[in-house]
Design a protein around this nucleic acid. Structure first.
Length: 200
DNA sequence: CAGTCGCT
DNA sequence: CCAG
């Protein structure tokens, strides 16, 4: 199964079967018990519509002071370990010898979206970013290495895995909208996106 | 004033 | 949607 290539991004469609998806969701629920979802502020004072948390050595965080990685949840506790079920996916698709130091958990409720941005808060851009989609379908938008210009969109479905590496490591990307309730994986609807990154 | 993981 |  060779992945679909869109602007250098590897799109592994249907990578995870339903049982694997269910197992992942169970592992994530445990993570979220000690590291509950929160809504970060952008450096420009707007609340993000996506709610998030993290697992691993570092968690991604944003407030008035900017975007950064922090070693603890806002509640003061260290981020829980990245579940083995998640690490297995990284080991299979990343082609990177290092282990991910952050598993960002993005929760998209009804109406949530994510504007075009780059993942560039890491110090190491050699390893790819691996993104795992669970739950409702999302309209994923792929831009360019710099802002502006034409974009391409495609629908990501539960179980799809995207690898952003090499020359596409810093490609602008975002989510225009989700189809709330389109998947039965999460009984109350919504989408979970996991983003695995080597940070340091 | 520039930029924007947001906004129109 | 999608471009700015």
């Amino acid at each position: 199964m060779t992945p679909l290539l869109v602007r250098g991004l590897e799109i592994h469609q249907g990578y995870l079967d339903r049982a694997s998806q269910t197992a992942l969701v169970g592992d994530l629920r445990a993570v979220l018990e000690t590291a509950p979802l929160f809504s970060p502020d952008t450096p420009y004072g707007r609340k993000m519509s996506v709610r998030m948390s993290s697992a691993g050595q570092y968690g991604w965080f944003s407030d008035r002071s900017g975007y950064r990685y922090v070693p603890r949840h806002p509640n003061g506790t260290p981020w829980p370990a990245i579940p083995a079920s998640v690490l297995a996916i990284w080991n299979d698709v990343s082609g990177c010898a290092r282990s991910p130091e952050c598993c960002l958990i993005n929760w998209y409720g009804e109406g949530a979206r994510m504007g075009l941005h780059q993942d560039r808060d890491e110090t190491d851009f050699d390893c790819p970013v691996v993104s795992i989609s669970l739950g409702d379908e999302a309209l994923f938008r792929i831009g360019n290495p710099t802002r502006g210009g034409k974009t391409e969109s495609l629908w990501l479905r539960s179980g799809d895995v995207v690898v952003m590496g090499g020359s596409a490591r810093l490609t602008y990307h975002g989510v225009d909208r989700i189809r709330f309730g389109s998947s039965a994986l999460l009984p109350r609807g919504g989408r979970i996106n996991l983003t695995l990154r080597v940070v340091s």
